[in-house]
Amino acid sequence: MNALVPETGLLPGFADPVAEAQKTFRAVLEAISRPGTIVTAPSLPAAPAPLNPVVAALLLALVDYETPLWLDQATHQPAVLDYVRFHCGCPLVADPAQAAFAVVAEPQSMPPLSAFHLGSDEYPDRSTTLIIQVPNLDGGDNWRLKGPGIRDQAILSAGHLPAGFKSWVRDNHALFPRGVDLLFAAPAQLAGLPRSTQLEG
């Protein structure tokens, strides 16, 4: 940001930072521990274009000074950069393999999941958590999910994902305990797909 121009464009974060961050974190916990479940976002802050309010809420709740963030090309807008610099204070990284969190606003042109930080055998927890913005959670192909947190079978059908996405998810699961975790953010809902989840069929 340039000190020569008074700043006027910044959007506010959560109105009640502690309570809303905690509720959003609880929603993420629910989404990740019950893969495929569609969770209603408890808080929808004003979001800088092209982000939807759920992506903004996830950034506010999860990302801070100690979590390097990677943004895809579509997200590289001044309004978004100012927003994350101010509210998250996080380092921005150009290499997805160095990111603790990544935001993908345009999944069709995203790099493969293997390009992100996959964690190590000693520290699998250090892998990237991807926040993928999607138009809806019921408009895509039906994926049948199995694994921890799923009683029999769950269905996830996030829309607007690239053709090869399903095989990326399979390859990612094969790396377990390494691998990335995915959060799909629709305009008012979210769903999780952790590395422990298997795709059937």
Partner: peptide
């Protein structure tokens, strides 16, 4: 001294 992300200086 500290460089706040929102200021850059």
């Amino acid at each position: 001294e500290l460089v706040p992300e929102e200021l850059g200086f």
